[in-house]
Structures are given as structure tokens and as C-alpha cells.
Computed example of a mutant assay.
Amino acid sequence: MRAVLQRVTEASCTVEEKITGEIKGGFLVLLGIEDADTTEDLEWLAQKIIGMRVFGDENGLMNKALADINGDILLISQFTLFASTKKGNRPGFTKAAKPDVAIPLYEKMIEKLSALLGKKVETGIFGADMKIALVNDGPTTILIDTKNKE
């Protein structure tokens, strides 16, 4: 699994001119899932997301996590995080999990993050043509890959 965490002051997802999810402060999380991903990857990544200390403290240092700021999450599925760009200029997506594998893991990630955060996680719609709006705070953008745990 790969996740791009963007610290935001606000973010929203719109599908067919309807807002499907929106947050004020917190993380916009773009989540890519590949066939090799497991529940263990999901558990590890969810803990990392919740525990990531990139929010400012009283001294302006990145020492606070989502819970410390009562932050929210907007979780967006994004298979393009597994784009292969080695050959030519047209990316390949063969490493990205097909919907029958990706959808259950995406739904479990929503549940896990909601449980850890203690509140609803906002989302897009899996497989939809989504329009994402955000104000990146910092900017602060973090890439996490479960295949690089060490």
C-alpha cells in the first residue's frame, strides 16, 4: 500500500457535482492498493497515518498528531500511485490491485481509520471520476509505502 498524506487546512471531494466528503484541518490521504497488500499492511499503515506527528505545536514545531489537533481525514482511493513509468510516456498500472481486491481493503481502511480516530472518515467514491480540492498546509506532503517499513 502507498499513501500520500497531505496536511491540509481544508479538502473536499466532488463526484458529479456533489460533495462526497469534506474536511477542515487534517489529512487528505491518497491511498493506492496493490495485489500483494494484506491486512497486516493495512493495520501498519493506519497506525502510521494516525500517529504521524506533522502538525504544529505551541512553538511551531511539527510535534502533534491528528488526535492532538482534533483533525479529520479525507480518504481517496488512487490506483495511479502504482503507475509504472519506466518505459515510454504512457504509465502502466499492472501493479495496482483490481477492484475485487482493492475495494474490500479500502473499506477496511475506512473502518480502521475511523476506529483509531474516534470519528467518521470522509471519503470519495471508489473508481469514480473525482475532483479533489485542497489547501495544502505548509506545504506538508508525506509518502508512506508499506513495502518500505524498515
Rank of each mutant, 00 (worst) to 15 (best):
P104N: 12
T140E: 04
A128H: 00
M130C: 03
V8D: 01
I76S: 11
G118M: 12
A115Y: 09
R7N: 05
R53Y: 01
L81Y: 00
V135G: 05
A65G: 04
T80G: 08
V29D: 07
Y106N: 10
E150T: 14
E10C: 03
A102K: 05
T38P: 07
L74I: 13
E111T: 15
T9W: 02
K131D: 08
D100H: 14
N136D: 03
K18D: 14
E150C: 04
L75E: 06
K64L: 13
D100Q: 14
W44F: 14
G127T: 08
K95A: 11
L61H: 11
D137F: 01
N63Y: 03
N63S: 12
L116A: 14
L105H: 03
K86S: 10
M1E: 02
L105S: 06
L31Q: 01
M62G: 02
K87L: 11
Q6L: 11
A97S: 03
N148E: 15
Q47P: 00
W44K: 01
F93T: 07
G127E: 05
P104Y: 07
K18R: 15
E17S: 15
K98Q: 09
P104L: 11
D72S: 15
D145P: 02
R90F: 01
T123C: 09
M52C: 14
T123F: 03
G25P: 05
F55V: 03
T146K: 04
F79W: 08
P91G: 00
D35M: 10
G92M: 05
K108V: 07
G51C: 04
G124V: 05
G32R: 04
A128N: 00
I19E: 15
D145H: 01
K24H: 12
T39M: 13
S84D: 14
R2G: 00
L143F: 12
T94P: 00
L31W: 02
A46T: 10
A102E: 02
W44A: 07
L5G: 02
L105M: 12
G118R: 13
E40S: 13
K147P: 05
P104Q: 10
T9M: 07
T39Y: 09
N70F: 13
F27E: 02
I144F: 08
I103K: 14
D72T: 13
D57W: 03
E107F: 04
R2N: 00
D137I: 03
M62I: 00
I49T: 12
L105R: 07
D37M: 03
L42S: 10
N63Q: 13
L143Q: 04
D57S: 05
M52G: 09
K149S: 13
V54Q: 06
D37S: 04
V29M: 11
L113T: 06
A65L: 02
N59Q: 14
P99V: 08
K48H: 12
I132G: 12
D37G: 01
E150Y: 08
S114G: 14
L30P: 02
D129H: 13
A67E: 14
N59A: 15
A67Q: 14
S114V: 11
T146E: 04
L143C: 10
E58F: 02
R7V: 06
F126M: 07
E16G: 03
K147I: 08
D41R: 01
I103V: 15
Q78S: 06
G56K: 13
L81T: 01
G92K: 15
